[in-house]
Write a protein that binds this DNA or RNA. Structure first.
Length: 352
DNA sequence: AATACGTGGCA
DNA sequence: TTGCCAAGTAT
């Protein structure tokens, strides 16, 4: 492969076909950063409305550093990977307090900030600061794995490192940001996972996969383990016209979001028993379980759940936040003010 | 190195 | 319906 030609022709293609995206209107590090964080594992079409809403509420680093966490989580609700939002708040505050509100421009310093890893550090350095640095994401891995019929799995460190070196070797001095974005645009619009549009690709004459018609076989990946499925129960506990919700601890799944109390059903346990046990563990109260008011199936990244929701009443005791950061009695109509994951939001809406 | 971490689109 | 995958990072 002639890396010089690939690089030159890719840039020429990008000059004509770059997508007009909201975060490409400036090179403002704050805006580039917001977009890159939101775009992790998330499609452009999904991100755009979130990006615009976020910028309307937090137009710069100062307003984000001063932000209310609940407001930030509400704006993030539905995007997933919620630690991204919490890390953005942390990073904004670090930059305001320790760096006079300026992003560092070196990879090493950028990577010290919460939520900034190899990719975002490279993206900020190259796109926002014009430095000659690689930003390698899933698109780049796929594009170059096909170009070279790359024989190593791209979801292992060695494979990623080799492709990073290939990209490094063809990085056009002075236009690394455009080059990185060109690779991503090509991967997102033409060299897509399934049914790549090779008839529109500017690189077919360099592409080994195209020449051998092996696009479907690349990139190679190590297979993931099958994911387990769990039965989960949740309770709608009532007190007058309010229901009880709890705020999950900051770490872990859906950290910092609100939920209806409950948990996993153990092996051999029936749903009622599980719910009584979970509520006793989480809130320190005994309940009577009433009607089943809904079943929800949901797939997280590494497991699936079937959630059964029950109406329930407290028999004795005052609920306490034994396993959560906070508990609150809330009227269902007010629950939109409480950031939640998908399943709990569906349950909340079912109560209206 | 392997696993945890959300959600929605698509075949 | 099920499984794969999408602008990754933290531990």
């Amino acid at each position: 492969m002639n890396t010089f030609l690939v690089s030159r022709e890719l840039l020429a293609w990008y000059d004509r076909h770059a997508r007009g995206l909201p975060w490409r209107e400036t090179h403002d590090p704050y805006r580039v950063w917001v977009s890159e964080v939101m775009l992790q594992q998330t499609r452009v079409d999904t991100v755009i409305p979130y990006y615009q809403k976020w910028l309307e509420n937090f137009s710069d680093l100062h307003s984000l550093a001063a932000a209310d966490e609940r407001q930030a989580m509400q704006l993030w609700e539905g995007l997933g990977y919620y630690s991204r939002a919490r890390n953005m708040l942390k990073t904004a505050r670090i930059l305001i307090e320790q760096r006079a509100g300026q992003f560092p421009d070196s990879i090493a310093e950028l990577k010290k900030l919460p939520g900034i890893g190899d990719y975002i550090a490279g993206a900020l350095a190259s796109i926002a600061f014009g430095r000659d640095e690689v930003a390698l994401d899933g698109n780049g891995l796929r594009v170059f794995a096909r170009l070279a019929e790359f024989d190593q799995p791209i979801n292992e460190a060695a494979g990623k490192a080799a492709i990073r070196e290939l990209m490094q070797s063809m990085l056009p001095q002075g236009r690394a940001g455009d080059f990185n974005q060109a690779v991503m645009d090509l991967g997102a619009t033409i060299c897509v996972s399934h049914n790549p549009q090779c008839d529109q690709c500017p690189l077919t004459k360099h592409c080994h996969a195209f020449q051998n018609n092996t696009q479907d076989r690349f990139p190679l990946r190590i297979k993931k383990k099958p994911i387990p499925q769990y039965a989960v129960v949740a309770a709608v506990l009532r007190n007058g016209d309010t229901v009880l919700v709890d705020k999950r601890r900051a770490d872990g799944l859906l950290g910092g979001l609100w939920e209806f109390p409950g948990g996993k059903v153990e092996e051999g346990e029936d749903l009622h028993t599980a719910l009584v046990r979970e509520i006793r563990e989480e809130l320190g109260v005994d309940i009577t379980v009433h009607a089943d008011i809904g079943t929800y199936r949901h797939a997280y990244t590494h497991f699936k759940v079937v959630v059964t929701v029950f109406e329930a009443d407290i028999l004795s005791g005052e609920p306490a936040a034994l396993a959560a950061d906070e508990i609150q009695w809330v009227r269902p109509v007010e629950l939109d003010q409480y950031p939640m994951g998908k399943v709990d939001r569906l349950i909340a809406h079912s109560l209206l």
